[in-house]
Amino acid sequence: MGISVDLPYFPRTGLLEDVAKVYSSGLKQGVTLFAPRRQGKTSFVKHELLPFARETLGWQTIYIDLWARRDAPDLALVEALEAELERQRSGWRRKLKLAKVKARAKTPGADLEATMVPVGFEAEDALENRLAHALAAVVDGKPTLLVLDEVQSLAGVKRENFVAAFRTAIQKLAGNLFVFYTGSSRDGLNQMFRVQRAPLFESAMSLLLPPLGTAFVDDRLAFLADRSRARVSRKALREAFVALGGTPEYLNELVLTLLIANDGNVPKALAAWQAARKEAGAHIALDGLRPLDHAVLALLAEPNHPSVYGADGLAFMSKRVPGQVVKTSSVQGAMRKLAKRGLVAPTGRTGDYEIEDPVLLLQLRAEAKTGK
Rank of each mutant, 00 (worst) to 15 (best):
L98S: 15
L299C: 11
L207D: 02
G188F: 00
L300C: 00
H283L: 14
K97R: 14
D352T: 14
E113A: 13
P248V: 10
A155S: 12
P303S: 04
L154K: 01
A99E: 12
E239T: 06
T32L: 08
D293N: 04
T56E: 14
S25H: 09
R69Y: 11
Q29D: 12
L208F: 08
D312N: 10
R349P: 01
A215E: 15
E82Q: 12
G188E: 01
V232A: 09
L212H: 05
T13H: 13
G175D: 01
A204G: 05
P322W: 03
S184Q: 01
R229C: 11
K100H: 14
T13G: 11
R38C: 06
A105T: 15
D140H: 08
V147W: 00
S318M: 03
K21D: 15
R54E: 13
P143T: 07
L251D: 01
A280M: 07
R341W: 00
L364E: 01
L33M: 04
D65H: 08
R277G: 08
V266I: 11
P322Y: 08
Y181Q: 00
T32D: 07
A236T: 06
R159N: 12
K278T: 15
R336C: 03
L148M: 07
G351K: 04
L221M: 02
L154R: 02
A271S: 14
F316L: 04
A72S: 11
R37M: 09
D263Q: 02
G120C: 03
P291G: 06
G109K: 12
G183H: 01
R194Y: 13
G175E: 02
Y181I: 02
V266C: 09
L200Q: 00
R290V: 12
A311D: 13
G313R: 07
L189E: 06
R104L: 13
V321F: 09
T56S: 14
L127V: 10
G348Y: 01
Q363F: 15
K327V: 11
Y250V: 09
A204E: 10
R234M: 07
L256C: 07
L200C: 03
D287E: 15
E356K: 02
M1W: 12
G213F: 03
A198T: 09
P199A: 11
R12Q: 06
G310L: 02
A295T: 03
Y353W: 13
K28A: 15
Q196Y: 14
D71C: 02
D312Q: 11
E150M: 04
F44I: 07
R290P: 03
E150H: 05
T32G: 08
V138E: 05
V31E: 10
A295C: 04
K28E: 12
D111Y: 15
D6Q: 10
R87G: 08
K95I: 13
E128G: 10
F201R: 01
F52M: 10
I355P: 04
A272C: 04
D71F: 04
L208R: 15
W92G: 06
A339R: 12
H305E: 03
E55P: 00
P267H: 01
G371M: 03
P346V: 03
